[in-house]
Amino acid sequence: MLASITPSPLSRAAIADYAERVAEKHHIFVNGESADIESLVDSLGGTIEVSESFVSPEALTVRDRRDFTVHLPALTSHRRDRFTIAHEIGHYFLHYLQPKVTGPKDFGRGSRNTAETQANYFAGALLMPEKRFREAWEKCGGDSWSVADLFGVSKSAASVRAQTLRLR
């Protein structure tokens, strides 16, 4: 069983700022609107593994700094996987690097708690930075499907981001 995760003391605004600074530092928006999330994992020293099992959970295994694996289930869409990867990167930054944890730590997914909400918020800001998102939202006339296409995320992820930015 996975140990519980201590939530980050950062506010939502600070989490969003942190995620956007990570995106900027690692230049994940080189080509267009969609973040190169896979290259970010690679540049951070991580790997991505797709499970061969149909019932594998999304999760993160950190062995140490610059040594982690994002685990993806076998039957999810590319857009869903992108958000999952960003979510797990959120755990890595907010619940491993920022509190200066050392050594191995596992992060599961599926629970509803503050740490999971924080990782989701980080993921949304990482994949859809506020300024870019607001511009895309206006350009697409508030159409969640069109905005989702620009950022390579699900309609649900784009809708939630619009709600958190109070565009809906």
Rank of each mutant, 00 (worst) to 15 (best):
P7R: 01
A13R: 11
I15N: 06
I15M: 05
A16T: 14
D17N: 08
A19Y: 12
R21L: 07
A23L: 09
E24W: 11
H26L: 08
F29S: 04
N31T: 08
N31M: 04
I37F: 06
S39R: 12
L40G: 04
V41G: 03
S43E: 12
G45P: 05
I48P: 05
I48C: 11
E49G: 01
S51L: 07
S53Q: 14
S56F: 10
P57A: 13
L60M: 03
V62M: 09
R63F: 08
R65M: 12
D67E: 12
P73H: 04
A74K: 15
A74C: 09
A74R: 15
A74I: 06
T76E: 09
S77G: 08
R79F: 00
R80F: 14
R82C: 01
R82I: 01
F83Q: 10
H87L: 00
I89S: 02
H95Y: 00
Q98V: 03
P99I: 14
V101E: 13
G103D: 05
P104E: 14
P104H: 13
K105T: 10
D106A: 04
F107K: 02
R109I: 03
G110F: 07
T114P: 00
A115V: 04
A115P: 02
T117H: 14
N120K: 08
N120T: 05
Y121N: 08
G124P: 00
A125M: 07
M128F: 03
E130T: 13
K131P: 00
R134V: 11
A136S: 08
W137K: 07
E138M: 03
E138F: 06
E138H: 05
C140M: 12
G142A: 13
G142C: 13
W145A: 12
S146K: 12
V147G: 15
D149N: 15
L150G: 04
F151L: 09
K155Y: 13
K155C: 06
K155L: 05
A157T: 11
A158K: 02
Q163C: 02
Q163P: 02
R166D: 07
L167Y: 07
